[in-house]
Design a protein around this nucleic acid. Structure first.
Lengths: 345, 345
DNA sequence: TTGTAGGCGTTATCAA
DNA sequence: TTGATAACGCCTACAA
């Protein structure tokens, strides 16, 4: 047996010896090739069992250049929205006989000096990239190597033809804000942006601005803050606004996570939602219908987006043609937190 | 360049040629060996840049038998409790210069016929195993190969000496139930178990039973249900109990997730919490303090447990001695959902 | 400081 | 149906 110390000891060669066949034959039964006599298969299989042999994936990948895994790179946040996304991805991965490996990065993931990301061709046949969790130069790099990739919630730079799956944000945000203005009678509507560089946030803000403009309302810079799609950040922003004495009768929190945290922060400061301040979100997370008050938001087909992205990646890996850009539309969901039921209609 | 088709093309050899040095030298600068002249380093680095070379991890792992990654196998549920756990793990991994790879399995992960788990020695230097997410025979297998592993929230079978990190469940549950009985005056307390085979659930139930016994209360089998630490399951259980007309004035939901879902289900059925039915959980998730009513629960140091487990694994990988079993204690957190503030004291 | 060459464990090609 | 053997891309003695 190779390598007395360390854990990887039993190799295909040991199995071959024990079974009295060649390594080629062992490899064949391991890979379920059908050109092996049943007798030999049996012999090899018992040898595998007796020796406790386990395949060395690194060697296999080196020889084959395929892994049976796909990977996703996400930011290391706890946004429940991610869970739905991962669920969808996992579904189609499993359906296609692939496993999903996840890497949660705390900063933008980057290839530096020839050293690859923790998820790469060595352990993965293709990668799903969430938003801007991977540095642009690295994207370029991998694209140059023709490594199969699909971008999620992010359009590639114009010179890189990487397929992507997107959400129609502007439309949804526009409708949401218009609902706040026209149906609920709000006029001073604050907006919390997502993380810097986030494309979804950008387009939601555009929808917000257009809706205000189209309804003859000014964009007051004082009403523009940041929630980063994150509970603590949202909470801090609310506290800051309240401390400043900012006047606002409604809040578009950017996403549901920030909205829920904002509601709590507002309530803790003694404000009633929606009576004193209306709050709306974006995404329609599972929890949003259950909180008090139930959240008015924009529904996004998150886990379907995950499924679609994974399927595109899988097709890409198989060398099939796919469309570069898939866009999912959204839908307004009116519940209580916007105060619609209180408005005089 | 090797392999004209496929994406992995530029090898260390190409770089060597371009820089006019040997592959050994390229390898040295790639690994930041200091026995290379600055001039040579520069030449190699520009060659790397120009060629867009990226290391082939499979080859590196095959040669080195190490990856710089650790992995964790978790069940594919969205329990927010997992997020805290992963956060803690990621922290210590990063601190030690390791990356964390996550595999979320939908059933118990199993090695079958020599084909390893998606996370293994090929992409990982050691593994964290959550609860019973890995099949026992597979555990045995990997233990036999001396692959570094640490079990989370799970004690190994008696014949396998795999280090583990545990939570003191029984004590916490006992105090929780005693609080319900002695301080809040509840007598018919229902219990929701976690997933089948879950050790945490087992011990929480023991604490529940002991507390009842010590206070002269019987264990009514009708009050024993299943929430699986999962919102939908908890909801279904509540609905079933309500349909049956089960009489209970308090509920220990097993964990916070099930508790929160139970509260919602109870409220939707027109029951007030805690006035009509008290509800308590376990874990003290971040959200639990924010819901209405704020949840009485048992605090578990989840992300610290994650940090500790990761550190143990890292020590194991470095070949250091570690203690087999680490146990974390819990603490009762009294808020509103137990109805303590309503009780006549 | 640099180069040569053998080995890591598997698969695939070519013969037999 | 089976067996030799050359890749796969990298690392590390050992030499120079």
């Amino acid at each position: 047996m190779a390598k007395e110390n360390g854990y990887q000891r039993v190799t295909i060669e040991d199995v071959a010896q024990r079974a009295g066949v060649s390594t080629a034959t062992v490899s064949r039964v391991l890979n379920k090739s059908n050109n092996v006599s049943p007798k030999t298969v049996a012999r090899v299989e018992t040898a595998v069992d007796e020796l406790g042999y386990v395949l060395n994936t690194a060697a296999r990948v080196l020889a084959n250049n395929k892994t049976g895994n796909i990977g996703i790179i996400v930011p290391a946040t706890s946004n429940p929205f991610l869970t739905s996304l991962l669920e969808g991805i996992n579904q189609s991965a499993i359906t296609s006989g692939y496993n999903l490996l996840i890497y949660a990065t705390t900063k933008q993931a980057t290839i530096q000096g020839g050293v690859p990301l923790p998820l790469n061709e060595g352990n993965t046949d293709g990668l799903l990239i969430f938003a801007d969790s991977v540095d642009e130069r690295t994207l370029e790099h991998m694209h140059r190597h023709q490594f199969p990739m699909v971008l999620l919630y992010h359009e590639p730079p114009p010179d890189l033809t990487i397929p992507c799956v997107l959400l129609e944000n502007k439309d949804g945000a526009y409708q949401l804000i218009e609902h706040l203005i026209k149906n609920c009678g709000h006029r001073r509507i604050a907006f919390m942006a997502g993380p810097a560089g986030n494309q979804d946030s950008y387009w939601r803000e555009q929808g917000y601005r257009e809706a205000l403009a189209d309804n003859g309302l000014p964009v007051d810079p004082a009403l523009l803050g940041t929630g980063s799609f994150h509970d603590w950040e949202a909470k801090k922003q609310i506290e800051k606004w309240l401390a400043e004495g900012l006047a606002f009768d409604a809040l578009f929190a950017g996403d549901d996570t920030a909205a829920m945290a904002s509601i709590v922060a507002l309530q803790q400061a003694g404000r009633r939602v929606p009576e004193d301040t209306a709050v709306v979100g974006f995404n329609n997370d599972t929890l949003s219908q259950y909180i008090t008050p139930p959240l008015t938001t924009v529904h996004a087909p998150t886990s379907e987006i995950g499924r679609t992205a994974a399927n595109k990646l899988l097709q890409l890996i198989r060398g099939e043609q796919i469309e570069q850009k898939t866009m999912f539309s959204t839908q307004l969901v009116i519940r209580q937190s916007c105060g619609y039921h209180l408005a005089d209609k």
